[in-house]
Design a protein around this nucleic acid. Structure first.
Length: 812
RNA sequence: GCCCGGGUGGCGUAACUGGCAACCGCGGCCGACUUAAAAUCGGCUGCUCCGCAUGGAGCGUGUGGGUUCGAGUCCCACCCCGGGCACCA
């Protein structure tokens, strides 16, 4: 007779079919008295097959969703696909296959994977962002923003990726290269669509204090917004009669400004140089500087270069005439595109002053040498300020500037407006019509969606491939009925994913993007889970959308994601998995070989989920053995009547029941207070080990209770194996059971071990009742044999007694 | 340069508010079952030393200091690894 074995290949599909048939994970929008919980993992970009990172992401989210359900919550746990984007389009250029078809194929492989992993998803709310029924509302939201002036077009120097032949958002440029393809990004002057995220800079910054997010993600967003407080100060060019404002965070050093520098792109550079001796040199310098890419220019290592403009401006605090230069270390995008240079207290200005032999005047005391960027008393400035601490003087100087009308306090940000237009095919069309008479006219709401037309050629040519769809592009102006043309750029795919979590609340709504009741029922997301690579882009854009939509009265919350968990990466052989390294492993391989439960438990057991972890095939085996052991207990105990748990357990039974209640306490704590799934799984392993050790001696009722408890506790991580074992032992459905409660009487012990130390070193242990008094403990410890040895001939100076833990004798 | 993480056995890790360092898993060793092997079950497993042995001593959480009866945990200084920002005025 063949030994019975744990066979996930037959167990898992059985439960998956039952859950699908009974629509177990679907949830209605009607409140039913239970508290709501919205658990969401970042939606996948469907490309090829799911990888290990997806498995970890959804195993994590599913564990949380299950746990919340069994704690009595009504849980929304939906799924969708971020389906527009470049990879599908590049594939289309290569093969001619429509991006819709390759995307659909990939979506199907993701669906198969999610179902085979047994993820508890409410499939009735599923959608892809590429479906007209979804992007109709993406366009509608765009028009709401357009209506309020939050979406606008302007000429600007933008990032151009020559390889992808499209513009990029600032956030998509990493070290001067295209985030996606790695090509060196060029600067181009183009007319593009922007969203006014900078209007929200302060709120995006301040509200970070209100949400439970990992500190490093908050700090990345703070860095990215880059708020600096300072002052705007006017420097006047008397010859031309023009005021040039500068932004400075150090108005306390104004008296030390000995020259003035403009960015090469500054619109007045040529005007200032006109008719001076250096005019030609200025032209040459500017031409050369503009030809440089962001990467070459943006480095501190490069020696400072620049040329004089042959003009001076007036320092407003002391009336001094200081020379004006053009130099590429000053950036047009930040502040006003011009700076006052204080070489004594700024490293870059110091370097420039040394190269060009310009005067360096110290105005803040302290530090051994120059440049000195730190704090100290004001010197060499003005009798009213000299001697004051520079931070105090700063406020007084700004107040003085303000009174004199020469400046005012000001705030500057690193954050730029979000460039959202793309000259690519596979994206959401921008619902605007350009009319020569009426200008930019929004597509009427009744005409939405503006559907993506089919084209012959997907290749980008510097203009959107949609340009070629002339039948589609040429339309009558909705306002004057004259001939007009559609906007042919599409939207950045980050627009699509900036509001998908709102759509899940009311995914089937054909009348509106969402019903307000449904939205208020579910928002905000109670727990959001995803990769840290989205710390800035997606997470900032989604916050901006929520705030903008809240201002329009369409959303009732200020923050979309109340709590965020960022998962660590799974590496292999210590390195990131990649095709070029050849170290990619597919979840499907492991699901086939060991079952989904093993794969899911392993990615959570491998280490703390927020940290990177290295995949090990042997480790998978270990987790598989554990589930097989649990299953075998269920198999052996199952079949008959559910046995009684002993009413007054003692001996082995008592120990086993104690271990079970200890495990309940441990797992509950690990899941509530923190996401310590690795230690939660370890605790269930301990319980299973304990059951095996007492298998021969304990009563069947105790074994059954302990086994059912182990199955119940592992349910969020291994739902199939758990359901099987739980049903075998109890005849009931584990997912319908409330989360177990630990019995406090079984958490207490009759005796505890107390450690006996001499001078902090453990010398012996004693078994005592937990209630033993301090005096008694000290007396008992003093008699412990090995303590006696170490106390012999010594004088006890002090005894420290911690009841239930230790006694420490301090001797001389 | 600034801001976040992190450094613990052969390996992945654990240690809740300062109180037995190493739970759980991998790997390794030993035993049971078996004709045998696999599977399974049980035990041992930080390093060094003393002892025939029950056992005992010393060392041990990146480095160096400090606080404390007691430090992986707190404080100061530093080193290394990972991530973010950076000619941002």
């Amino acid at each position: 007779m063949a030994e019975q074995r744990y066979e996930p290949a037959s167990i898992e599909p059985k439960w998956q079919e039952l859950w699908a048939r009974e629509k177990t994970w679907e949830v209605s929008n009607e409140p039913d008295g239970r508290p709501k919980s919205y658990v969401l993992e970042m939606l996948p970009y469907p490309s090829g097959e799911p990888h290990i990172g997806h498995l970890k992401n959804y195993a994590l989210g599913d564990a949380i969703a299950h746990y919340h359900r069994r704690r009595g919550a009504r849980v929304l746990h939906p799924m969708g696909y971020d389906a527009f984007g470049l990879p599908a389009e590049n594939h289309a250029i290569k093969t001619g296959q429509h991006p819709r078809d390759s995307t659909q194929a990939s979506i199907e492989s993701f669906q198969r994977a999610f179902r085979s992993w047994g993820i508890s998803v409410d499939w009735s709310r599923e959608f892809g962002t590429h479906q007209p029924s979804y992007y109709r509302w993406t366009q509608w939201i765009f028009l709401q923003l357009f209506d309020r002036g939050l979406a606008y077009r302007k000429d600007a120097a933008v990032n151009w990726c020559p390889n992808d032949a499209t513009v990029l958002a600032n956030e998509q440029v990493v070290d001067g290269h295209c985030e996606r393809c790695g090509a060196l990004v060029e600067a181009r002057q183009l007319n593009q669509w922007f969203l006014r995220i900078t209007d929200y800079a302060d709120r995006l910054l301040d509200d970070l204090d209100e949400i439970r997010w990992p500190e490093h993600v908050k700090s990345m967003q703070r860095n990215w917004i880059g708020r600096s407080e300072g002052a705007e100060v006017n420097f006047r060019c008397e010859e031309l009669g023009i005021d040039y404002p500068v932004f400075t965070t150090r108005p306390d050093t104004l008296f030390g400004a000995t020259f003035f520098v403009m960015a090469p792109e500054h619109p007045d550079v040529f005007k200032l140089a006109e008719g001076t001796d250096g005019e030609k040199a200025v032209h040459d310098y500017v031409t050369q500087a503009l030809g440089e890419g962001a990467e070459e220019r943006g480095t501190t290592e490069k020696p400072k270069t620049g040329v004089p403009l042959g003009r001076t401006v007036t320092n407003p605090v002391n009336g001094e005439q200081i020379p004006v230069f053009v130099a590429d270390y000053v950036l047009l995008e930040y502040g006003t595109g011009a700076i006052m240079a204080v070489p004594a207290h700024d490293e870059r200005d110091f370097e420039f002053a040394q190269t060009f032999g310009l005067p360096i005047r110290r105005v803040v005391g302290g530090g051994d040498e120059l440049p000195y960027p730190g704090d100290g008393p004001i010197v060499n400035s003005h009798p009213d300020f000299d001697g004051l601490a520079n931070r105090d003087a700063l406020e007084k100087i700004v107040a003085w500037l303000d009174r004199e009308g020469r400046g005012h306090s000001s705030v500057s940000y690193r954050l730029r407006d979000w460039l959202v237009s793309r000259q690519r095919y596979w994206g959401c069309p921008i619902p605007i019509i350009h009319c020569d008479r009426c200008g930019m006219v929004p597509v009427p709401e009744a005409d939405l969606p503006v559907e993506l037309p089919d084209v012959e050629d997907y290749a980008p040519k510097g203009r959107s491939p949609l340009d070629a769809a002339t039948d589609w592009a040429n339309v009558a102006c909705p306002s004057c009925d004259g001939s007009a043309r559609r906007e042919t750029d599409t939207m950045d795919t980050f627009v699509d994913s900036s509001w998908y979590y709102l759509r899940y609340c009311d995914a089937g709504n054909d009348e509106a993007a969402w019903g307000r009741d449904a939205l208020d029922e579910w928002m905000g997301v109670d727990q959001y889970i995803g990769g840290v690579e989205h710390a800035i882009l997606h997470l900032m854009y989604a916050r901006f959308f929520t705030k903008a939509l809240a201002d329009l009265g369409l959303v009732g919350v200020q923050e979309p994601f109340e709590a965020l968990f960022t998962q660590g990466m799974i590496t292999r052989g210590g390195a990131k998995m990649s095709k070029s390294r050849g170290n990619v492993i597919s979840p499907a391989t492991y699901v086939e070989r060991y079952g989904a439960d093993t794969a899911r438990c392993y990615v959570l057991f491998i280490g703390p989920p927020d940290q990177d972890a290295d995949w090990s095939d042997e480790g998978v085996e270990g987790v598989h053995r554990f589930l097989a052991r649990l299953w075998r207990l269920g198999y052996e105990l199952g079949g008959g009547e559910a046995p009684e748990v002993p009413g007054a357990p003692e001996g082995v039974d008592l120990e086993l029941l104690r271990k079970a209640h200890w495990a309940i306490e441990k797992v509950s704590g690990d899941m509530t207070a923190r996401f310590a799934f690795n230690t939660a799984i370890a605790a269930v392993m301990e319980l299973v080990n304990e059951i095996y050790r007492s298998r021969e001696t304990a009563a069947t009722g105790s074994l059954a209770f302990a086994t059912a408890t182990a199955a119940s506790l592992i349910q969020p991580f291994a739902p199939h194996c758990s359901s099987e074992v739980y049903e075998l032992v109890t005849g009931r459905r584990v997912w319908e059971e409330p989360w177990p409660e630990a019995d406090p009487r079984l958490l207490e012990r009759d005796t505890v071990e107390v450690v006996c130390q001499v001078n902090g070193k453990v010398r012996d242990r004693i078994q005592v009742a937990p209630s033993t008094s301090k005096e008694e403990l000290e007396a008992l410890a003093r008699e412990a044999p090995n303590v006696v040895t170490h106390l012999a001939g010594q004088e006890v100076v002090k005894a420290v007694v911690v009841p239930g833990r230790l006694v420490n004798f301090v001797v001389r």
